[in-house]
Design a binder for these strands. Structure first.
Lengths: 155, 155
DNA sequence: TATTTTTAGTTGACATATAAACTAAAATAA
DNA sequence: TTATTTTAGTTTATATGTCAACTAAAAATA
């Protein structure tokens, strides 16, 4: 894994390298976290849904989950199918809108969400422990700035 | 898209928020770039292969592509199947190792790689134009530091 | 040299992801 | 009220991604 700290190609511009640095770091993060949730969950995507459900104060529909996690509704269907089959979540018909479901954690789903979250937070701390408080703040600020660049100027 | 500049949940610690900032920025980047290569290519993954082949000085095998891009060999098989069917790349049997293929861009594949790369570099410049040179350097440095954190301390 | 182990690539099973076409229901307009 | 449009969720087709099992060939070792 050590080798993959370096990007695979060289870039003509530093701004391109910076953008690829983010992409590459996230790719590595994904690789590492992929196995992290096993064997309890199949993927990070499933974990994200459990965490969101556990942290939310409001009731969430499938649409809400998709919007918040930037996941297509058709993908949400399958993710929830699998989480439902495992007994982590349940779909309850919405009280007034018969097109919609309210998604809730089951008791065991909530327990699992909290157990995995605890493990996850610990790992996050390990990963970030080499960075100073100032650097942490700088990452948050700079990433926001890049996202603003992404949001403007179209596709 | 503007709404998604903000992360979907709040975090107990700033280091967790920083890590999720990277993840979220990369997710947005992926969304934006996903459509960027269409209709010529199906995905960023295909673009990455073309760019790597175009930029490399050495001959690359399927294994080399997978190692450099952190993509499983079984995934490389499918990606190259599709790129080959489109006429972008060709598999040539390795001169001495009969298990292996040398992957090369076709003439039209090279042309496409260069065309898309040009378009891509322009877009990258738009995205990053709001950042100062110092900030660009800081992103490169900080992302490397995070990757070092990921590489140490196991899984 | 003969046997064992490793390696390159493919295949199949499964999870994630999007887009388009669809159903049923809600919201809006006529 | 009726007709139209929008919305929530599912289904299907296709691409990306992993892992495990497999084949054939190379490399290591006995």
């Amino acid at each position: 894994m050590k080798a993959s700290v370096d990007l695979p190609i060289e870039f003509a511009s530093r701004e391109h390298e910076a953008l690829m640095s983010i992409w590459w770091t996230s790719l590595l993060l994904k690789k590492v976290s992929g196995k992290f949730f096993q064997p309890e969950l199949a993927s990070e995507a499933q974990f994200n849904i459990l965490v969101l459900l556990n942290d939310s104060n409001e009731e969430l529909s499938q649409k809400d989950l998709g919007v918040k996690l930037l996941v297509d509704k058709s993908n949400i269907t399958g993710l929830l199918d699998r989480l439902e089959k495992q007994g982590c979540i349940e779909r309850t018909p919405h009280e007034t809108d018969r097109r919609s479901y309210t998604i809730r954690l089951t008791k065991s789903g909530k327990k699992l969400a909290e157990k995995l979250d605890k493990r996850y937070v610990k790992r996050v701390h390990e990963i970030m422990s080499a960075l100073t408080k100032k650097e942490i703040e700088e990452i948050i600020r700079l990433m926001r700035k890049v996202r603003n660049g992404l949001a403007t100027g179209g596709g």
